[in-house]
Amino acid sequence: MENLHFEYEVAGNNFSQAGMASDAVKSTLKKMGIASEDIRRVAIAMYEGEINMVIHGGGGVAVIDIFFDHIEIKLIDHGKGIENIELAMTPGYSTAEDEIRALGFGAGMGLPNMKKYADVLEIESEVGVGTTVYIRVDFH
């Protein structure tokens, strides 16, 4: 069976549009009849990544490939990059500004949540160049 391929633009610093790509993927998985617990894991992991692109990455592209037994999500931005990925993975660590926190983001739980819900999470980042996040979620 061939995989389904989608690409979505994610706008930087636009919080009213944030989550639209995750929402679209969620709807697609629902139509495919994927189990709701798997959809929840995909949607949350991807939304956290999408929000990071909005807050830190100046927007970017979400590349989605859906296979019969798993989904691969690649989130690519050309933002400021992550200086210390290990530190960024620490629950509670955040570099978000106060106005971002006022919206309810910036708890420092984005990457830890992605790790919690993804079966594979890989982050490549270079300061001043950008970040690519790879998320794989297996369907159970």
């Binding site: 009213s16 956290e48 919206l103």
Partner: peptide, 24 residues
């Protein structure tokens, strides 16, 4: 009120008590 905590911990089908009111 921190959205990541909600996504990480709120059980499916729950009542979510918050003071946040924005679109997110």
């Amino acid at each position: 009120d921190f959205l990541s905590f909600v996504m990480g911990k709120a059980p499916s089908g729950c009542a979510w008590f918050t003071v946040m009111t924005n679109i997110n």
